[in-house]
Design a protein around this nucleic acid. Structure first.
Length: 595
RNA sequence: GCCCUCGUAGCUCAGUGGGUAGAGCACAUUCUUGGUAAGAAUGGGGUCACCGGUUCAAGUCCGGUCGAGGGCUCCA
């Protein structure tokens, strides 16, 4: 993290802070680190900033850069630091944190350190001095004035805690050259073009109606619903082929169930208010697990029955604060591709291996092929349920499975939930953004609470292991990610309309309809563009809808019994006999490929 | 929930220092029957998010409510 770019950005952050303080001499500084692609600085200011302020600040930054002030590092004692920053309460708080060894310069909690050994450093350029570990570039002139840009102002809590004062954060970006800045801004624009909310409207996939329906609740339009159907259908077949049983459960359940499961104690703030039915309280389900457990418990289970894998595309409802809702990615009602595995201890390692590989197989089928993982282990003694050996065995199984899979992983020590360790799988999308999808989670809590058992070989009841997992996560979120991954240009097997027939003149419509009928009979999704546009405009419209195959038919094609094939890539394949086209498309579909 | 910004036609957006609402796309009708990313004309469509205030007059100014976007926090 001390690369040249890092120093550049960190230095740009200091330059910005100077410019802001000149504008607001009574302003207070919080922290201002370099981040991926840029930097920010948090301020406590007498008034709120507006976009014009950013322009002025940026202009002043260029002047400071042009003056080429050197960055001067110096070491100070805690007392000196306290004097320097006497008017900067946030800095003082950081200093006390550093002195007591509980904080790093970034305001993050660190391990304990010794008071005596503390050395503080500051960096000064011109008349601006900031508490800072560094490093920086040598002088402000090393920042390229054409490589920086202030992006936006946002609210941020001091130390990220909402009980603390809200500060104003200015985000900026900094690059070594104007070209790199340009490229970065272009990447942002590219990401915006892929935004699933924009494409959702443009391609007529889904809609959200906060006023009439409610925020975080999704309406799947026919084309979006078709894609979801294809995704689910494929996954369900694969689940059935891989030893899962499908189950269904209702959307509500009595309070007693949620009391037994512990959700009312531990998860209540994410649950909606209960409804009363004949004097009993019922809750909308935030999770499917208790239902699957009741299925498990509905009969006496033998060790011979295990492992059991109950899968359900279960729709759950969770309260999310209004400010966090975001398109399909963060909603209040969603459908998980949920499953619960129940197995014997001796089956556990194989079970984890299986589910990890199964997940990778499914994700690859949807065009994701770069993965990384997090293994989250046992949290501090007090918080964790279950005995230590169980945890160790489970963690070992998870890590062994990761090792065998060859996926790069990191261990989040103590990051597991109180009820079990877990693996989170992340995928990289087409423009290199990471998304967390799969989660594979041990649960030592629910089997205990529901007293789950199976009859062992020894004729004695034993406690099964329980693993909770969602592979794509939720259908809503996964769909959003899929839209952005493909930029709306879905692979042929998922394209809602696979081919559009474009008759050149009205007299070619009948032929076009016949072609569509034959394609439909072959299991393909095709339709005729019956509009009155000219051919070129029909191509344009099909292109905008990202339809993979455009089939133009005019006199020549009717005559020869062919279609002229144009791909959405722009490639013109020329005339093809219908049979050959159908075979070609079926091949692409079977390979889950794209065109 | 909190901070900032925003809310005008189905979509994308214009609307000058307050003076009776506009464009492109989409849609409909008509003309055109055109060979690989926009043929033309005409037309329908808006209680300018909602409520209140200032004013002779409010899309425009002020206050509130609701909603959205970007963040913070949280998370599938």
């Amino acid at each position: 993290m001390e690369s040249r770019l890092y120093r550049l950005r960190h230095s740009a952050s200091h330059v910005m802070a100077q410019a802001v303080l000149e504008m607001f001499p009574e302003g207070k500084l919080a922290i201002g680190p370099a981040i991926e692609d840029g930097f920010y600085y948090d301020f406590d200011l007498p008034r709120t900033l507006n976009p014009d302020d950013l322009v002025a600040i940026e202009r002043r930054m260029r002047e400071i850069i042009a003056a080429n002030y050197p960055f001067v590092r110096r070491e100070v004692t805690p007392d000196e630091a306290r004097r320097i920053f006497a008017n900067q309460p946030y800095k003082l708080e950081l200093i006390e944190g550093l002195v007591s060894g509980s904080l790093t310069e970034d305001g993050e909690v660190a391990g304990a350190g010794g008071e005596a050994t503390v050395t503080l450093t500051t960096y000064r350029h011109d008349n601006f001095e900031d508490l800072c570990r560094g490093p920086h570039v040598e002088s402000t002139g090393q920042i390229n004035p054409d490589g920086i840009k202030l992006l936006r102002v946002a609210g941020a809590y001091w130390r990220g805690d909402e009980r603390n004062p809200m500060l104003q954060r200015i985000y900026g970006t900094a690059w070594e050259t104007a070209e790199e800045l340009e490229a970065y801004l272009k990447r942002l624009a590219e990401a915006e073009k892929r935004d699933h909310r924009r494409l959702g409207t443009q391609l007529d996939l889904f809609s959200i109606h906060p006023d009439q329906l409610g925020g975080g609740l999704i309406l799947w339009h026919p084309k979006g619903a078709l894609i979801r159907h294809l995704v689910e259908d494929f996954c369900k077949r694969e689940h059935l082929a891989h030893g899962y049983d499908l189950v269904y459960s209702p959307h509500i359940g009595r309070s007693a169930l949620w009391e037994t499961s512990g959700h009312l104690s531990y998860y209540r703030e994410n649950m909606y208010a209960p409804m009363e039915i004949e004097g009993q309280q019922y809750y909308l389900k935030p999770m499917n697990c208790p239902f699957h457990i009741l299925i498990y418990k509905s009969t006496l289970r033998s060790y011979r029955d295990l492992p059991l894998r109950f899968a359900e595309w279960g729709t759950v409802y969770r309260y999310e604060r209004s400010g966090v809702l975001h398109g399909l990615l963060r909603v209040r009602g969603f459908t998980q591709d949920d499953a619960h595995h129940f197995c014997r201890p001796d089956q556990m390692p194989a079970e984890i291996d299986f589910v990890l590989n199964f997940s990778l197989y499914l994700l690859r089928s949807f065009g994701f092929d770069e993965f990384s993982a997090y293994l989250s282990t046992r949290p501090g003694e007090r918080k964790a349920v279950g005995d230590v050996e169980q945890w160790r065995a489970a963690e070992q199984a998870l890590e062994d499975a990761l090792k065998r899979s060859g996926i790069p992983y990191e261990i989040d020590e103590g990051g597991g939930a109180f009820y079990g360790p877990k693996i989170d799988l992340k995928v990289k999308d087409a423009i290199n953004r990471e998304w967390q999808l799969t989660t594979i989670q041990f649960d030592f809590n629910l089997p205990e609470r529901f007293d789950l058992t199976y009859m062992g070989e020894d004729g004695q009841p034993h406690r099964p292991y329980m693993v909770h997992r969602a592979l794509l996560g939720s259908m809503e979120r996964f769909f959003g990610i899929l839209i952005e991954h493909y930029g709306g240009a879905f692979p042929v097997w998922l394209a809602p309309v696979q081919a559009v027939l474009i008759p050149i003149a009205d007299r070619h419509r009948d032929y076009a309809r016949q072609v569509v009928a034959q394609m439909k009979a072959a299991g393909l999704r095709a339709e005729v563009d019956e509009g009155s546009d000219r051919m070129a405009n029909k191509i344009r419209k099909a292109q905008e809808q990202k339809i993979p195959y455009m089939l133009i038919v005019g006199d020549r094609e009717v005559e020869a019994g062919t279609v002229a094939v144009r791909l959405r890539s722009g490639q013109d394949l020329g005339p093809k006999p219908l049979g050959a086209l159908i075979a070609m498309m079926q091949e692409v579909i079977a390979a889950k490929a794209t065109v």
